[in-house]
Amino acid sequence: MTAPRPHRLPPPLFTARSRAAWLVAAVLALVVASFLSLDLHLAAFLSGEALAGMGRFLGEFFPPDLSPAFVRKVAEGAWETLAMSALGTALAAVLGVALALPASRLHRGRGLARLFLNALRSVPELVWASMLLISAGLGPFAGTLALAIHTSGVLGRLFAEAIENAPPGPGAALRAQGAGTVRVFLYATLPLVLPQLMSYTLYRWENNIRAAAVLGVVGAGGLGQLLMFHMGLFQMDKTATVLAAMLVLVALVDAASFGLRRALTR
């Protein structure tokens, strides 16, 4: 009959040798320092006067403007926003694949390619749209290009990592037969990573539908332009209708993207 094993106590939550503990302590210290350095007026924000003013402001949104003419105008803006996000994401996916190949570790010049991808995605869509308005003019064209440029930097980096993590066996077999880099990618690497690339693209489409709505701030068309116009005129009933259309559009795109991503992973 064997003797029972002695019970071992769980390790302490914080030890001097635990890197995770030191990391958590550093993050907590950073959070505390952030609160101390920011001029946060929490007492004024939660005061009765501030809450009453917020309640009056929210009351101006009701009832929303549901007149047929304005609903038709909002529907056209929603379609414009949806088209901007879909076309911008499609262009970004094509550019992302083209930029992912030189940015992967399979190529020697990946440092320069990754630097270019970093430059594309480090500039927000709103800034790209502001610069493109000079050449493309007001309207959805500048917004579509802004989404495509920024998203191509994001997808290019994600696609490059997917290509790097692809199993090397099929590609090595084709290279042994004398196939070039393009054929190896098309016939060996791409079929393996295509579901992952599609999943990344659909996820970015979800983000771009929100970004396309915001781009209207600088006159890039869609629901965002309607929102800024009517909010600037303090027409809160019309603003409420535009906000409701944004919520419905985002919910529909999220549901469609989620369903497509689940279908790809089966």
Rank of each mutant, 00 (worst) to 15 (best):
V31K: 10
A50S: 11
V32C: 11
S34W: 08
S37L: 15
F35L: 10
F35T: 07
S34Q: 10
L30S: 13
S34M: 13
M54L: 15
G48T: 10
D39N: 08
A52V: 08
A29F: 06
A43I: 09
L51G: 02
L36A: 14
F45V: 10
F45S: 09
A50F: 07
A29R: 07
G48D: 05
S47E: 03
G53R: 13
F62Y: 10
A33V: 12
E60S: 02
V31A: 13
F45E: 11
A43L: 13
P64R: 00
H41R: 12
A44M: 01
V32E: 13
L42Y: 04
L40W: 14
L51I: 08
V27G: 05
L30G: 11
S34P: 00
V27D: 06
L40N: 12
A43V: 13
R56A: 04
E49I: 03
L51C: 06
G59E: 01
L46V: 10
V31P: 06
A44W: 03
L51F: 04
S37H: 12
L51H: 05
A29T: 02
E49M: 06
F61Q: 00
G48W: 02
A43D: 12
V31G: 13
L40K: 06
L38Y: 12
G59C: 08
L51V: 07
S37Y: 10
L30R: 12
D39E: 11
F35K: 01
G53H: 08
E49L: 00
L42S: 02
M54V: 09
S47T: 01
A44C: 03
V32D: 06
P64W: 00
L58W: 11
L30W: 00
A33H: 07
G48H: 03
D65E: 05
A29L: 05
E49V: 07
L58H: 00
